[in-house]
Design a protein around this nucleic acid. Structure first.
Ligand SMILES: NC(=O)c1ccc[n+]([C@@H]2O[C@H](COP(=O)([O-])OP(=O)(O)OC[C@H]3O[C@@H](n4cnc5c(N)ncnc54)[C@H](O)[C@@H]3O)[C@@H](O)[C@H]2O)c1
Ligand SMILES: NC(=O)c1ccc[n+]([C@@H]2O[C@H](COP(=O)([O-])OP(=O)(O)OC[C@H]3O[C@@H](n4cnc5c(N)ncnc54)[C@H](O)[C@@H]3O)[C@@H](O)[C@H]2O)c1
Lengths: 281, 281
DNA sequence: ATGTCTTTGTGAACGCGTGCACAAAGATGG
DNA sequence: CCATCTTTGTGCACGCGTTCACAAAGACAT
């Protein structure tokens, strides 16, 4: 290269921040819903509300796409759906294999949302000989012996691991050796993979533990240990949260069986992005 | 309040960064494994390797806990297990309800890792009258009508939503109104909750789409559109990734059925937390 | 055409998270 | 008791992500 200089504003270089990529599916979902209701255009404010994010963030995200809105009007829904789909690589078909067809693997296989976005379950693989041939979600389960052949024949590049933790690394190694370069791991293990292979993990246990941490803070500090009550931002925030929680609890106790929920406007607590689920962040 | 000023350095207030909290379960898992092998102490370097994180990061994380290691030796495994468990609130029992006992809900109910860490499935709830009374994972499914009573009677503060997307917000509202203040949502919807309620989401579809994005970049840019090939950091990183992927693919093609994986030392690609894999520097 | 009004696109500031690098702490051996 | 060696705890710098705030762009009315 070398030609490049900093004075190139890089108006449209192909550099999309990871945080933005993680939000694109969220926008896409909201846009798809609008599209189904035949809404022609949407403002950043509206769409941001639907996706549960800040509108400035959304606009900046779209600016990375080079996506063009129309000032004074908003974004064209159909156009955005297409742009985001293309950017995410959803205009092509992605064959996926699921390895480990137990409770979870079977549920995943049955999951409809799979096919809805260009992902196709190419094969279900399990090590249990008794499973071989048995149909799950309309697909016959194949034995692990066939793994390499399946990957190669179908050009599979995305694999889902739903085996017990003990088998995960071994399965991962075989998948990678066979040509898989993206793995979604449901087993509670840290997978080691070579460079160039992406791993994302979904760990129910971790999610619950994170919730428990916050739960403990909300409930615990309320009455618990009274020593060391320094005043710092965090403590203040915690106190505020406690108050909010107490309000919720009181409202709950008061009756109001279903929803008198102030779902309307005011306070939306961001189920948003940060530290999403999987990651961590 | 009010007394607080900015000039308070807040040396050791109870302020644990969210990113750290998200990693604690990871450390805990690695430590538990060590504990089962009766390993007495572990260095930050070893533990970091086991958890798939940077050792400096790990040490800093532990420093927030006020956790004390011993210089020249490392950390006491048992002590750390206890400290982290306590910090995460795992020393107490957390009753959890699962709402929506379909494919996924049933799999979650059957999941053993649930109980292993202080989480107890207090009830399974479904709106389908046909499900009522049917045992799943040894627990009789209860009808949604009982939701409020179940929450109240069992003091449930954590709820798992595994219903179809359309019902999620409504179920969420009822859970919150009944007193639940932490929700783990598997339905592909943005939930709106009042302040003080935590929501975490697990969305398979989003994970796959993120993988597809990187997959497209790896495979696509290789041959695809040749116009506009500017030189910027991102492009360089992508190119590097492509090379790595090609190597993997070639190795795969060459045979090597299982693992000749260089799992050894060198390149562990962070399955870690944030933005796991590609992470273009 | 011109003015007004809405909404985008982004410059800039800020805060958080990460990782380097090193001084201090303590164990261990002589 | 001192020297050496290991490993922690953290100060610091850097980069990413978020958010504010506003100028510019364009629609729309007059
Ligand atoms: N069930 C859940 O809700 C849930 C939630 C979170 C995480 N997980 C994790 O997901 C994984 C699967 O959970 P599950 O409840 O479905 O377990 P399961 O025991 O029901 O299913 C595991 C399946 O993997 C198969 N298997 C074992 N070794 C294999 C191998 N080497 N190659 C291919 N297949 C192999 C088994 O034959 C079995 O069918 C576990 O690691 C679990 O910790 C499950
Ligand atoms: N199955 C998966 O692997 C998977 C993966 C990712 C996300 N999801 C999501 O998880 C959710 C459940 O998926 P599934 O495959 O188990 O669907 P499912 O249709 O098999 O199960 C849904 C269950 O929820 C019950 N239900 C419906 N409305 C209810 C209400 N108002 N209150 C209580 N229960 C109610 C239904 O009776 C049914 O038993 C869906 O939103 C799906 O998009 C599933």
């Amino acid at each position: 290269m070398a030609t490049g200089r900093t004075h190139r504003p890089a108006t449209r270089s192909r550099g999309i921040p990871e945080a933005t990529v993680a939000r694109l599916p969220l926008y896409l979902r909201a846009l798809t819903a609008l599209s189904e209701r035949s809404v022609p255009t949407v403002s950043s404010e509206e769409l941001a509300a639907a996706a549960g994010v800040n509108s400035a963030k959304l606009r900046k995200d779209f600016s990375y796409l080079g996506s063009y809105g129309t000032r004074g009007v908003g974004y064209d829904v159909e156009y955005l759906v297409y742009q985001i789909s293309r950017e995410l690589g959803l205009t092509q078909d992605w064959p996926v294999v699921i390895v480990g067809i137990g409770n979870l693997g079977a549920a995943l296989a049955n999951y409809g949302g799979f096919a809805s976005r260009g992902f196709r379950v190419a094969a279900l693989i399990d090590a249990d000989p008794a499973m071989a041939g048995k149909p799950v979600a309309g697909i016959a389960v194949q034995h692990t012996d066939e793994l390499e052949k399946i990957i190669t024949d179908n050009g599979v590049s995305i694999g889902v691991i739903a085996t017990p933790a003990g088998a995960a690394q071994q399965v991962c190694d075989r998948l990678v050796a066979a040509g898989v370069t993206s793995i979604l791991n449901f087993a509670p293990t840290v997978l080691t993979v070579p460079d160039g292979v992406d791993v994302r993990k979904v760990d129910l246990s971790i999610e619950l533990q994170i919730l428990a941490f916050h739960e403990q803070r909300k409930a615990g500090e309320d009455a618990g240990h009274d020593d060391e009550e320094s005043d710092d931002a965090r403590a203040v925030a915690a106190r505020e949260a406690r108050r909010a929680v107490r309000e919720v609890r009181e409202a709950a106790a008061k009756g109001a069986p279903a929803a008198d929920a102030p779902a309307g406007a005011s306070d939306r607590k961001g189920p948003d992005g940060d530290v999403p689920a999987v990651m961590p962040a």
